[in-house]
């Protein structure tokens, strides 16, 4: 799922609309509506899919607590409690109920902690957002640096190394990176406080752990895009038309190189959310990843359901935003529209 594929996707979706002589604005709003509808559908289907996967989990914390002889529940009490959590219903009824609640914004109640799942996510979210956001910024910085060096360095060993670096970043398990960062920078050099996982130092290093593999993805696309832009004629054409170099750069070089990079950032959201699971564990942060891990070990299905669907919603929203903005930014797509 690379930048290009997604771009191709948007183009593909734009082209069929080309037939007919509707105005570009009209066609864009049709496209936008369609993307929004698709996104809603994807989120709902994701909910169903996750529900069905989780239905295969044997057992749940409520039942295992109820069945513990030491708690001494009688059968009637057991039945009451199970029906309170809706566990006595057939699976499809449970799905319908849960989906209905989800649409009303009710994420259910944690089976292991007896807290509304929404509250759990709400408490954990800021930490993960800070981590993922910082990681994205770091990843962009690293990619920019690598992109810059890939064009700046003369062809040779150094340039090859820079171009090879993303592959190295991608191949190193992020738990290894995290463990070594803690060992070197917290324990040996004492540059940050591990007991304060939400402190700036700890957050920066956790974000770096998360950023390294993500930066590799972004850098690969960015470097390729820079190379492709460098191969285009229009930069020179623009110069010959007498535009100031600054304007040329702004309009013709940066923008086309950054566009695929923006798309890949959208896709990286998934990587950031998934990667937070391991990073948060290693750095002892209380975030969505930790919530997921606890829910996994407690077989707390409502929490898993909500957190996974929540991640999907974030992913879909970010990519929807990018897809909606993309056609407005991409000169190639706009010129195609004009041609049509």
């Amino acid at each position: 799922m690379s930048a290009t594929l997604s771009t191709a996707e948007s183009k593909e979706r734009l082209t069929p609309v080309r037939s007919g002589n509707r105005s570009p604005a009209r066609r864009y709003s049709t496209y936008a509506l369609r993307r929004v509808a698709e996104s809603v559908l994807v989120v709902l289907l994701a909910y169903v899919l996750v529900f069905l996967v989780l239905a295969a989990i044997p057992g749940d914390p409520v039942s295992s607590q109820l069945d513990n002889p030491q708690n001494g529940y009688n059968d009637e009490e057991k039945a009451q409690i199970r029906s309170f959590y809706g566990l006595d219903q057939p699976i499809l009824v449970q799905l319908a109920l849960a989906l209905g609640n989800f649409l009303r914004g009710d994420l259910g109640i944690s089976l292991s902690m007896s807290l509304p799942v929404g509250d759990l996510i709400g408490t954990a979210l800021p930490s993960t957002l800070v981590l993922a956001g910082t990681a994205l910024v770091l990843a962009l910085l690293i990619s920019l640096a690598l992109g810059y060096l890939s064009q700046r360095l003369p062809t040779g060993a150094a340039n090859t190394s820079v171009r090879f670096l993303p592959t190295v970043f991608l191949s190193t398990p992020n738990f290894l990176i995290g463990l070594i960062l803690i060992q070197v920078f917290a324990v040996q050099l004492r540059l940050f406080n591990v007991i304060d996982p939400n402190g700036l130092g700890s957050t920066l290093f956790a974000a770096l752990t998360l950023a390294i593999p993500v930066s590799a993805q972004i850098a690969q696309v960015f470097i390729t895009a820079l190379d492709e832009t460098a191969a285009q004629d229009y930069t020179e054409v623009a110069v010959s038309r007498g535009l100031r170099p600054g304007a040329v750069i702004l309009r013709h070089l940066i923008r086309p190189s950054l566009l695929p990079t923006v798309t890949v950032c959208g896709l990286a959201v998934g990587e950031l959310l998934g990667g937070s699971l391991i990073t948060e564990t290693i750095f002892g942060r209380n975030g969505i990843g930790t919530v997921v891990q606890k829910a996994v070990s407690a077989q707390d299905i409502p929490v898993l359901q909500a957190t996974v669907v929540f991640s999907a919603v974030v992913f879909v929203l970010v990519n929807l935003a990018i897809d909606l903005i993309y056609p407005l930014l991409d000169p190639r797509l706009r010129s195609k529209e004009k041609a049509a």
Binding site: G270, I278, V296, V308
Partner: peptide, 14 residues
């Protein structure tokens, strides 16, 4: 689309 929307590591975990 749905499979892509769920972060792959999370999907693997569940």
């Amino acid at each position: 689309d749905v499979l892509l929307a769920i972060p792959s590591f999370l999907l693997a975990v569940i």
